[in-house]
Design a protein around this nucleic acid. Structure first.
Lengths: 219, 219
DNA sequence: TTTCGCTTCCATCATTTGATGGACACTCTA
DNA sequence: TAGAGTGTCCATCAAATGATGGAAGCGAAA
C-alpha cells in the first residue's frame, strides 16, 4: 500500500503530483505562513476544496513537501557519492560541488525549503522528525572526515553543515544576490561554483596533510 | 528632526523602543507573515492599537526593523574594521570571525532577519532599498580583495557573501543544529568559530601568495 | 441504463488578522 | 480649573484565510 506522498511522487502528472510540485515551489518562495492554500490552488488551476480533498489540511501538505524534498536530496547525495567514490579529495569536492550546485539551481525550492526548516519557526506544532542528522553524518563519512563506522564527531558534522549551508545560501539567495552583482544566470552559477571551490577545497586539502587537528585556529 | 526610528533607537526604554526591540525578535523568529501584530503587542504587554498608534501599519514596523538591524550591522562592521586595521590577513579574519560571531550570537535576530531578507519573498511590495551591496563592497576592500578605490569585482563580493552567509547560517540555525550536534551553547559557539576559521582562512591565505587568479578551480 | 465510487467545484462558515474609532486617563500649561 | 495634547485601551470592522458540506460531473462496473 502506497502512502499519499508515494503516489504523488510516482505519478507527477496526477492531481496529487501536480499539487505537490506547485506546493513545493510556493512554500519555498513564501514560507509556511506566507503561503495560502488559495495561492497553491490558483497556481495549479483548481478549486481550493479540490486541494483539501487530496491533501487534507495545510500542515499535512507542508509536511509532505518536506518529506518529498528530503527524499530528493537523499537520492541526489547518494548519486553523487557513487560518482566520487574512490577519487582523491579535491576532485571529490569539486565534483560534488558541481553536481549539487547544478541540481539545486534546477530545483531551487529544495534549498528554499531546507533553509526555512533550519532558520524559521512555525506557529504550528509539527510531529515530523527529519533525518537530516543521518544525512550529514553520511556525507562526513563519505568525505573521509572520520572513520567509516561509529559516531561522527561534531566538528566533522559542522564542516559538512558549512558546505551545505554555503551551497543552499547561494541557490536560495539568487534573487537577492544576482541583481546585486549584476550578473546573468549562467555567469552567476559559474561564479558560485568557482567561489565555493576556491573557498572550501583548500581547507579540506590542508586538513588532510598530516591532520593538524582541530585546534589550529583556536584562540 | 528625528524620524520615528531614530527616536526609538535613541531611547530603547520608550514605548517605541520597546516595541521595536520585541518586533525585531518576533519578526526574526517567524518572518513577516508568520508574525502577527497581536503577537508583538502581547509580548510587549500592550494593546494592539497602542502598537498601531506608535508604528502605523505592520509593513512600516517591519521596514523599521530592517533599517534598524542594518544600522546595527553597519556600526558593528565599522567597529571591527577599526580593530583589524593594519594586521596580517589571517589575524584580520580570525578577529573578524570572533567579533562578528560573538556579536550575532548575542543578537541572533539580526542573522534571522538578514536571512529572511535574502531568501524569503513577501506578499507585500516594499519600497525599501537596502544598502547591503555597499556594505559587502566595503568589507571586500577592507579585506584587500581588491583595490582601495573603484569597482569591486563580482568574484570578490561573492567571497565576502560566502563568509557572511556562513556566519549567519550558524547563528540563525542554532535551534536546529545545536540539538542535532547535542552541544551546549558555549560549546556550540566555540565550535562555530573554530569551524569557520578552519574553513575560511586557508582559502584567503592561499589567495594572497602570488595571486593564483580566479580560474584555478574552474572546469 | 443504473449504480457506485471518485473527483471537482460552488457556496459557505468560523477564525484569524490587519486596522480603526472613540472613550478615558494623565500631564502640562495658561 | 479649563483645555489642549498625548498615550492607552475596549469594542469593533472588513478582509483574508483555513476548512467543510453538498451538489454535480464523469467513467467504470453491474
Amino acid at each position: 500500500m502506497l502512502t499519499v506522498l508515494e503516489k504523488a511522487r510516482k505519478d507527477p502528472d496526477s492531481m496529487k503530483g501536480r499539487i505537490l510540485k506547485v506546493a513545493r515551489r510556493i512554500f519555498g518562495e513564501y514560507g509556511f505562513h506566507g503561503t495560502t492554500t488559495r495561492m497553491i490552488a490558483q497556481e495549479v488551476g483548481i478549486d481550493i476544496s479540490t486541494l483539501y480533498y487530496h491533501w487534507g489540511e495545510k500542515g499535512e501538505l507542508y509536511e509532505a513537501v518536506i518529506l518529498d524534498i528530503n527524499e530528493d536530496l537523499r537520492r541526489k547525495l547518494s548519486e553523487v557519492e557513487q560518482v566520487i567514490h574512490g577519487r582523491p579529495l579535491a576532485e571529490r569536492m569539486s565534483i560534488s560541488i558541481d553536481m549539487m550546485t547544478d541540481y539545486l539551481f534546477e530545483c531551487p525550492e529544495i534549498s528554499n525549503i531546507v533553509l526555512f526548516q533550519y532558520f524559521g519557526k512555525t506557529r504550528y506544532r509539527s510531529s515530523l522528525d527529519i533525518q537530516v542528522p543521518e544525512l550529514i553524518s553520511d556525507i562526513a563519512r563519505s568525505m573521509n572526515l572520520c572513520g567509516r563506522r561509529g559516531k561522527v564527531p561534531a566538528a566533522a558534522r559542522m564542516k559538512v553543515l558549512t558546505i551545505m549551508n554555503a551551497i543552499h545560501s547561494f541557490i536560495s539567495g539568487e534573487n537577492f544576490f544576482r541583481p546585486m552583482l549584476n550578473l546573468g544566470r549562467k555567469e552567476y552559477i559559474q561564479l558560485v561554483k568557482m567561489t565555493l571551490k576556491h573557498i572550501l577545497i583548500p581547507a579540506f586539502e590542508r586538513g588532510q596533510e598530516g591532520s593538524p587537528g582541530e585546534g589550529e585556529y583556536a584562540l
